[in-house]
């Protein structure tokens, strides 16, 4: 912990001094999406695959109420407890008043409309790999969702992690738009890689992190402690997860493991999302996982 503090303070010093230009929160270019128009139908698929509602629905929401992105769910971590904000279409308390550029900056760069860094509990380090068309479509869809006027609650994060400027250094060290798995051999694996690494952000829970909370890309999807403190998040690499490809796809559809135990914890939300995607999408994820390199 002391070590963590030291490194972070050093980052803060760097962030606030010499390299300010590199570390500041810079939004995406205004004209990047100019030629694209949003398709809300595909946006809905992106929204489901990206699991937006799973974290942003109200803590006790069920069924259709999960589409009211009022926020309030708590996510404990080594750095404090993050509370999902209101990202409903409400223009005051949600994101209804944002421009497409502001939305894209938030989702793909972790930069807020007023130029602050978001904490990476918001998985923009995965969403940074989202295609421009999917970003535009997602925005088109999210504007059709209901508004909630519940104010966002502040995160429960203490010093020094409450200094958001330090996240500029964090991003420089740990944010990359390169694929973790460079070699994919089939169309299905390529699609699976996009779903796993970009949209569904599986690595955020299934990969271990270093002392500063950066993902350990050398142990990609090799399992990790549960930040919520309840058990361990299992490995998905083929040497650990010996399920057949069709068993993985069936699990994502039905929530049943090969021996017909049922899914639990936050993964219930993930399976609910995957069940709404196409059978091809679920198979693609399975193919990608089966082709994963074995962790060291």
């Amino acid at each position: 912990m002391k070590n963590k503090l030291g490194i972070l303070l050093a980052l803060v010093a760097v962030g606030s001094g010499v390299a300010w230009g590199v570390l500041r929160a810079s939004p995406v270019d205004e004209d990047r999406f100019a030629a694209l128009s949003g398709n809300p139908d595909n946006g809905q698929t992106v929204f489901t695959a990206a699991g937006c509602a799973s974290c942003h629905h109200a803590p006790d929401a069920e069924k259709d109420a999960k589409l009211i992105l009022t926020g309030g769910q708590k996510f404990p971590s080594d750095f404090g407890t993050f509370i999902a904000p209101n990202i409903s279409s409400d223009p005051v308390h949600g994101i209804g008043g944002w421009s497409l550029t502001e939305f894209a900056s938030a989702v793909t760069k972790g930069v807020s409309p007023d130029g602050a860094h978001y904490y990476p509990a918001f998985p923009y380090t995965s969403y940074t790999k989202m295609t421009d068309q999917d970003v535009v479509d997602l925005w088109a869809y999210m504007q059709t969702l209901p508004a909630s006027d519940a104010p966002s609650q502040p995160h429960e994060v203490g010093f020094p992690f409450n200094i958001r400027a330090s996240l500029g250094g964090w991003k420089l060290l740990f944010m990359s738009d390169e694929w973790v798995v460079q070699n994919v051999s089939t169309e299905a694996e390529t699609k699976g890689r996009y779903l796993v690494e970009a949209l569904a952000h599986c690595g955020e829970c299934h990969s271990p992190r270093n002392a500063l909370g950066g993902l350990d890309r050398n142990n990609w999807l090799a399992g990790a402690p549960n930040p919520a403190g309840d058990g361990r998040i299992p490995a998905l690499t083929p040497n650990q997860l010996d399920w057949a490809s069709e068993d993985i796809a069936y699990y994502l559809e039905s929530g049943f493991t090969p021996d017909f135990d049922s899914v639990g914890g936050h993964m219930v939300e993930v399976v609910d999302n995957f069940a709404k995607l196409s059978a091809e999408d679920r198979t693609a994820v399975a193919q990608y996982l089966k082709a994963l390199p074995t962790a060291d």
Binding site: N226, D230, G231, R232, G255, S262, V263, G264, G265, V268, V271
Partner: peptide, 10 residues
């Protein structure tokens, strides 16, 4: 799922 989500530990 509905039951395990609330009442069973991981």
């Amino acid at each position: 799922k509905a039951c395990h989500d609330t009442y069973r530990a991981s």
